[in-house]
Design a protein around this nucleic acid. Structure first.
Length: 930
RNA sequence: AGGCCUGUGGCGGAAUUGGCAGACGCAGCGGACUUAAAAUCCGCAGAGCUCACCCUCAUCCGGGUUCAAGUCCCGGCGGGCCUACCA
């Protein structure tokens, strides 16, 4: 039939027309608005459900097809839950501060405020074109002063708090300060008390306890990015973004004392419904290890403390190693040892190397003896102290006891430098000890006794506790838990971020901006480029009029500082992660000018367990998700939020990959340089066969697909359906443009089921076909179940099967003889609506409905339609299917046995042999053993 | 080097608790309709064997548990992700 004969066919143009029409309508009528408690339209009888997407970082290039995957999934659940009678919160916004926007601005010469706003506008347009049921009235960006005002406020709350170890939670630091003053405590080891200390000393003391504090730290300096980076932002010694080399240097920076929360961040992973892999990654990142600290006496220096997880091997510690940055190195150099020059050179060399150099080189250990010794507290022996860069200053105490017999790293080092070794553990399974390798496993202690203590013969676990008890009793050490997690470096030498609400006076003391003076606005800068320098120089320093101000002007409490005092503003800014640490809270109450979120809105939407469903990429498994949990716990301690964890259920969508082609030598070829021939692929220019492989979408491979092009060719409903039909949400899956036709044809069939393509008239069945009716109930039931378990691909398959069953044959003369009745169509459309909302809304309205399908109820399922009266059961003889029998659905085992044994084919297969055993699995199958 | 995940037709995938392997879609093949093609509708379709099958083989490879294994256990091989001198 020619196109002119089917002018009312569902094609790209029709899809585009009806989709944009309904999108405008939904937006205009606020169809997707969620009412807050206290709002006029709020219905308190409904349960709440909070569905959150990880909000995007709007980039200049716009959305790619990976973005809508997770967004479509949450949209389906949103629409489904609304139809099921929930009050659903489903918001969207923009994570818009940060490095990429700034780098893009520097490249293009356009201010990041301008490029970011236009990127946001483009992202919003693209998302709205896909018909997602976001409550757009709640939209905000992290760059909005109304938002970052509260980011600054939360930071101030942390600044004003410390971690009370005795209570295990954050408390106002004012309480601690009052206590210090009242008790007139000594502030440090030197015994100087509070009242005898200068204000600077008092502040420095409090800074060792604040949750948001300033401190001098060895930081990761990335000259190419012109900023310092958090440990989490470094991969293989290079910046996660851009892969630039990173160097270590000491710097005074704002930090978060996330380590105070290490144990709780670890423990509470048990409370959340998250993928195991993500919980494992977080717990490994936190890196709890149990062991002991042990003091080794160094004559003239004092104690050299090490952390070890194997105190049971203390008798085998035959030398020690400290990190090149360890204070003991300076002390040793001060004694002018023979190899002073070599030590100095080694330390300088290892310090200046970037991490990438350290790791690029072979594992060959380097190091140098310091020419001093320590006393092994167990053996009383003098053992040499070395320095080597395989010992990290940032972990434990920056010093180790080396037990080459039972530690692979120590073994390699000892082998290289011919250092002594002693066996102190015998393998539990009797494997003989050799000097060729370290025996790291557990076993039984040996050669481990002195006049006071013997752990010989004890298993590793018992030997460990015995040793710790002895160390504790003799004050040579103690039980200790150590974490790999380090404090979070929270300042960046960049322009495009939240300013810190803090100023410094000429003494270098810091003062917080009052809450009432927030936000501290980011000043408009014409030149915001990073400053090329060996030393970090924040671009905000160029805003001299903004930086140099008075206490009064900056909003410092007059009780803290005279308003006329000259002060300098902090010129570092917060890192890109700041805004995403609490955005899910702001969505609950985005316009609140008095609080970051009202108690009522927070308690309602966060409920008992926080966000009910959070979907986003697994690349945020450690960074964002750990930081957000940390902020949330601080806010919980301070009484600002009511749940312990922010995200109850987390799910990661897989990556959408693409095809590329690979030559015989393993190099990749762009898709446009290849053609298909005889079921294979040929590189056109070289006439050589290539194989199809799966690769990430990239410009160079010419395999990037954008939602805009798919929407133009098929419409948004088809794109949504295709992305959900590709496979399980969690898996990574290749985009295959060819396959889109399948779901598009499905929507065309849906359309044709209701609409006569030639006339545009509604066409419906006169009466319901019982088989179709039955299948309709089953499909709706399955779709509901599948949505609950996020198995959208199988839900769609069920709907396709239903439509195939209901489709009229071409030969049918009267359309009313087939298809669906109005009532059936109504129910079918509601089941499909979460997936393909536009076409369903259109057909729904054509059925005569006047309220949006969005607001309709999920169709009811008749349970009796889900069971068959007669079941076909496969019958196995000796475990192989040999026959099928039909039985009543409620037949018991005895009845089924009788039917089976009476069946001719069964008897034939049994060949006269008597049944030895019959296994009947109700409603599944029968197995006869002879 | 370690940890976690994963391996099913030509392709994407299904099989929810151990119970008929390959649902559904793509690509392919055949038919109806058409002067013809497209579109549409109906059918076929894991491999093997002489057609068919209530035959044989088959879920990366090799063992095992079980009446029964894609699914559970052990050992390999391949792919992916994470961590990577963390004492």
């Amino acid at each position: 039939m020619a196109a002119h004969e089917t002018p009312y066919r569902y094609d790209a143009a029709r899809a585009g027309e009806l989709e944009t029409r309904w999108q405008a309508q939904w937006l205009a009528t606020g169809a997707n608005r969620a009412a807050n408690p206290g709002d006029e339209s709020f219905d308190a009888t409904r349960p709440k459900y909070y569905i959150l997407d990880m909000f995007p970082y709007p980039s200049g290039v716009g959305l790619h097809v990976g973005h809508p995957e997770g967004y479509t999934a949450t949209d389906i659940v949103t629409r489904y839950k609304v139809m099921r009678g929930f009050n659903v919160l489903h918001p969207m916004g923009w994570d818009a501060f940060g490095l990429p926007a700034e780098q893009y601005a520097v490249q293009t010469g356009v201010h990041p405020a301008v490029t970011t706003r236009s990127a946001i506008d483009n992202f919003r347009r693209q998302l709205q074109r896909l018909g997602f049921a976001y409550d757009w009235s709640r939209e905000f960006g992290t760059i909005d002063p109304d938002y970052y005002r509260w980011t600054q406020w939360i930071w101030l709350r942390a600044y004003h708090s410390y971690y009370d170890e005795s209570r295990g939670c954050a408390r106002p630091i004012a309480e601690l300060e009052a206590k210090c003053r009242h008790e007139d405590r000594p502030l440090g080891d030197d015994g100087v008390v509070w009242s005898q200390s200068t204000p600077q000393q008092q502040q420095a003391y409090l800074d060792t306890l604040r949750l948001a504090f300033i401190g001098s730290q060895t930081v990761n300096w990335c000259p190419a990015l012109g900023t310092v980076l958090a440990n989490e932002e470094i991969v293989d010694g290079r910046s996660e973004r851009g892969s630039h080399p990173v160097f270590r240097m000491p710097l005074r920076q704002w930090m978060f004392r996330i380590t105070a929360y290490a144990q709780r961040l670890l423990d509470d992973l048990a409370l959340v419904e998250w993928p195991d892999s993500t919980r494992t990654m977080q717990s490994e990142w936190i890196g709890r290890s149990e062991g002991a600290e042990v003091k080794f006496a160094v004559e003239g220096f004092g104690d050299l403390t090490v952390f070890t997880t194997r105190p049971d091997t203390l008798f085998g510690a035959s030398y020690m190693v400290v990190a090149p940055e360890h204070p003991l190195v300076e002390w040793a150099l001060a004694k002018c040892p023979k190899n002073f020059k070599e030590i100095t050179e080694y330390v300088a060399w290892s310090r200046n190397r970037s991490d990438v150099d350290r790791q690029a080189e072979s594992r060959e250990k380097t190091g140098i003896a310091l020419g001093i010794t320590a006393m092994n507290p167990a053996t009383g022996e003098s053992i040499a102290i070395w320095t080597a860069d395989y010992v990290l200053m940032a972990y434990g105490t920056g010093a180790i006891m080396a037990v080459p017999a039972h530690d692979e790293r120590d073994f390699a080092f000892a082998a290289r430098f011919k250092l002594p070794s002693r066996q102190v553990v015998a393998a539990a399974d009797g494997t003989p000890f050799t000097a060729d390798a370290a025996a790291c496993g557990a076993g039984v202690a040996c050669n481990s006794h002195n006049g006071d203590l013997s752990i010989d013969g004890l298993t590793t676990a018992v030997a460990t506790t015995t040793m710790i008890d002895w160390l504790t009793a003799t004050k040579r050490g103690a039980r200790r838990v150590n974490f790999r997690l380090r404090d979070w470096l929270f300042s960046r030498q960049r322009y495009w971020g939240e300013p810190f609400p803090i100023v410094f006076d000429e003494r270098g003391m810091h003062f917080p901006v009052s809450e009432s003076a927030l936000p501290v606005q980011l000043p408009q800068l014409v030149d915001y480029a990073p400053v090329q320098s060996d030393q970090p120089v924040p671009p905000l320093g160029k805003a001299t009029a903004w930086v140099n101000t008075t206490a009064g002007e900056a909003g410092i409490d007059a009780k803290l500082l005279d308003p006329a005092t000259a002060v300098r503003r902090e010129t570092n800014t917060m890192p890109g992660w700041a805004g995403s640490c609490w955005y899910y809270l702001r969505y609950c109450d985005p316009k609140n000018a008095a609080r970051f979120v009202s108690k009522e809105a927070e308690q309602y939407w966060m409920g008992d367990r926080g966000v009910d469903l959070y979907i986003g990429g697994s690349e945020h498994a450690v960074l964002h998700l750990l930081y957000a949990r940390f902020w949330h716990k601080m806010l919980f301690d301070l009484g600002e939020v009511s749940t312990v964890e922010p995200f109850a259920k987390l799910f990661h969508q897989g990556m959408i990959t693409s095809f590329a082609f690979e030559r015989a030598d393993g190099t990749l070829v762009a898709t446009d340089a290849v053609h298909e021939a005889d079921g294979g692929w040929i590189e056109t220019a070289a006439h050589a066969p290539v194989t199809r492989v799966i690769a990430k979408m990239s410009k160079s491979l010419k395999n990037v697909v954008t939602p805009d092009e798919v929407v133009a060719e098929y419409g948004a409903d088809t794109l949504r359906l295709y992305e959900m039909y590709m496979g399980p949400l969690a898996e990574s899956k290749p985009w295959n443009t060819r396959d889109i036709a399948g779901v598009f044809r499905f929507l065309q069939r849906v359309w044709r089921l209701a609409i006569d393509e030639r006339t545009g008239e509604l066409q419906l069945a006169r009466k319901a076909d019982p088989a179709v009716e039955r299948q309709l109930h089953r499909s709706i039931h399955k779709v509901a179940q599948d949505i609950e378990r996020l198995a959208f691909n199988t839900a769609i398959a069920a709907l396709i099967e239903l439509v195939n069953a209901a489709t009229r044959p071409t030969a049918m003369k009267d359309a009313a003889d087939g298809g669906l009745t109005a009532d059936q169509l109504s129910r079918f459309l509601r089941a499909l609506a979460p997936f393909a909302p536009h076409i369903c809304e259109e057909l729904w309205q054509r059925l005569g409905e006047r309220t949006s399908i969005t607001k309709s109820q999920w169709p009811a399922v008749d349970e009796s339609q889900l069971v068959d009266e007669i079941l076909a059961l496969p019958v196995q003889i000796q475990g192989k299917v040999r026959a099928h029998v039909t039985v009543p659905f409620n037949a018991d085992a005895a009845q089924i046995e009788a039917i089976v044994l009476g069946d001719a084919k069964v008897q034939e297969a049994m060949a006269g042999r008597p049944p030895k055993k019959i296994i009947v699995v109700p409603k599944r199958m029968v197995n006869v053993l002879v």
